[in-house]
Amino acid sequence: MKRRDFLKLTAGGTAALACGVAEARPNLEANDNAIGMLYDSTLCVGCKACVAKCKEVNNMPPEIDGDKLAWDSARDLSDKTHNVIKVYKNGTATVKDAEIDGYCFEKRSCMHCVDPGCVSVCPCTAMRIDAKTGIVTHHPEVCIGCRNCMVGCPYNVPQFEYDNVFGQIQKCEMCNQPGVERIDKGMMTGCAEACPTGATLFGTRETLLDEAKRRMALKPGEIYNYPVGDVRKPDKHHEKKVPEYKQHIWGEKEAGGTNVMHISSIPFDKLGMPPLEERSAASVAETVQHTVYNFMALPAIALAGLAFVVNRNIDDDDDGGDA
C-alpha cells in the first residue's frame, strides 16, 4: 500500500486537469447568412400543403395510419415524414388561436438549431452544420446508426428507419440535400413555397427574426400585410388582422437558438415545445468533454503515472507472472 504514491498520482492528475481545463464552451453563434424559416401558427390554416410538398420533394411514401384512414396521415415525424402539421385543441376547439376552447396548428420539422445537439453527439461527424447555409445536414455514408442524434435532439427530430434492415437516419435538410439542392439553386424550401398563407415563411435567419419582431410589435386587431414565400422578396402579400401574439419568438434564444423559428398565440409548452434553457446542453457536454480530453493531455499523464505505479507493484508482487 503506497498511499503517498496514490496521493501524488491524484495530485498530478488534478494539476493536469487544471492545466487542461478548456474554456467553458459557450453556445455556438448563428451564421450571418444562415437560411431559415419562420412558422407563424396564427397564419396556418391546416391545409397540409407543406406536408404534401415535402413528400413530393423528398420522394417519400405516405404514412398510412392503420386502417383508420386511406391517405397520408402521419401522426408525427417519422422515417417517411420530415414535416407534419399537428393540432392543439382545448375544450370545444372552435376558436382559432384561442387557448381556451380554441385550437391552433403547429408545424413539426427540423428546427435546424444554431448549436445542434445531434451534431455535437454524433461520433462519426454524420451530422454537420453546413458552413454556408447553417443547415443541419445528415451524411448516411459515414453513419453507424448509433442513434445518439435522436436522443441528443431536444425536439426528437432525427428518425431512424427501424423497419428496414439497411435503414438510415432521416431528417429535414431544408431541401438542400444532394439531388435536390433547392437552396443552392436559389429556390425556397418546398414547404415555404407551397404554403398559401405565408405561415411558413422562408428567408435568412436574420431577416426572419426581424419580421418576427415586427409582428410581435403589432397591435392585435390592426391590419398587417403578411408576406408569402421569401420574406426578402415575397411572391405576394395578403392582409389579415393581427392576432394576439404571445411575446415569444421560439428559436431566438432556446438552447442557442434555431434557424427555424416559431411564433404563435398559444404558449409554446402547450404546442409540445420542450423546456429548454438558453444554454445548449451540447455546449455543456462539450465543455465537460474538452475539459477531460483536451489534447488527450490528462489521459496521457494519467497513463504515465499508472504505468509507473503498476510496474513497481508488479515487481513487488511475489506471484510475478500472473496477471
Binding site: V119, S120, V121, C122, P123, C124, T125, A126, P140, E141, V142, C143, I144, G145, C146, R147, N148, F160, E161, F166, G167, Q168, I169, A282, A285, E286, Q289, H290, Y293
Partner: peptide, 25 residues
Amino acid sequence: DMGRFWQFYEIFLPGNWNFNSAMLE
C-alpha cells in the same frame, strides 16, 4: 443495436472523428 452495422468501421476512421462526442470516446 447499431442501425447501420455494416459500416461499423466508420467510427474507427480518424477522418470521421468528432472529438466533441462522448459517444466517440
